[in-house]
Computed example of a mutant assay.
Amino acid sequence: MAPEPLLPNSGRRVFVALGDSFTEGVGDRDERLPNGVRGWADRVAEKLAKAHPGWKYANLAIRSKRLRQIIDEQLEPALRMRPTLVTLYAGGNDILDLKTDMAALMDEYEQLVARLAETGATLVLFTGFDVKVSALLEPLKRRNTFYNQRVRDIAEKYGAVLVDYWCLDAFHDRRMWDSDRLHMSKAGHKYLAGQVLDQLGVPHKIRPKDWEPPSRLTLREWERRQRRWIHEWVLPLFGRKLRGVTLGDQLAPRWPEPVKVPKKGGLKKLVAEPEAAENA
């Protein structure tokens, strides 16, 4: 017996992406698009539309959001869109906050997944990656491990598609990461889009970068990179924490309502030619 298709080939097709910077697309810069980024979710939406024209797409994710904010700000709008495909990554920012009760966090995460599963949509969940940012963050590894195992268990319980980001060896290459070391680079977002499409059974031609092995850094190069990273990313991050602000405070969702993705030209065409949505 043939496996039941994960996605509808006809009828209503609405993809809604929920979450934080991971799903917003931070690290994959494109000033032509809302919030100046593109990201894996946009790329998935475009490949869906290319394979089966008629898909609509909304992306409600905003950088820096905690799980509770995602529930409060994104869940009800997503449910009103009557999605047939939902992707969710949430909780990563909570893990970085040492006062977070991980057991309580994951109970709340499961409640969110249960609400989304009730829609009958195909639901895609993600584990987190063990980002080697700094030895200072190694104590967080136990929290990451707990988070990932709960996500795996919850995905199985609710019949969700799991993208086990933790196990994707390609991300051990530093070129898959942006200069802040926390967000994927353009190459990382492209690769992850391919992984999501593979899990959904959607055809695509995304291929991993054919790089030469990464060069070893000299001590001087390493020190220079460390100083630049601390000056450009670490100190501003602590400054924002002291002021009680985040990078997402003044941002709106990139695609707050479902847009019909053009089969040709993708989402950039919608920005350049808004009337393209009518003829997609």
Rank of each mutant, 00 (worst) to 15 (best):
266 G>R: 01
279 N>L: 03
198 D>H: 11
199 Q>R: 15
44 V>W: 00
198 D>N: 15
167 C>L: 15
248 G>L: 04
78 A>T: 04
24 E>T: 04
154 I>G: 07
115 R>Q: 13
124 V>D: 07
269 K>H: 00
23 T>C: 00
80 R>S: 15
267 L>N: 08
242 L>S: 09
260 K>T: 09
82 R>A: 15
170 A>H: 08
229 W>F: 13
265 G>T: 00
164 D>K: 10
213 P>Y: 12
31 E>W: 10
136 L>K: 05
144 N>P: 04
246 T>R: 08
141 K>T: 11
114 A>T: 06
255 W>C: 07
135 A>R: 04
224 R>S: 14
237 L>T: 14
62 I>F: 04
246 T>K: 09
162 L>Q: 14
109 Y>W: 06
261 V>T: 05
201 G>A: 12
94 D>R: 01
222 W>S: 15
124 V>F: 09
122 T>E: 10
74 Q>C: 08
254 R>K: 15
121 A>P: 05
102 M>V: 02
5 P>Y: 11
102 M>K: 02
223 E>D: 10
18 L>I: 01
12 R>H: 15
195 Q>L: 10
261 V>W: 02
57 Y>D: 00
169 D>P: 02
160 A>H: 08
95 I>F: 01
176 M>S: 05
136 L>P: 04
96 L>G: 10
60 L>G: 03
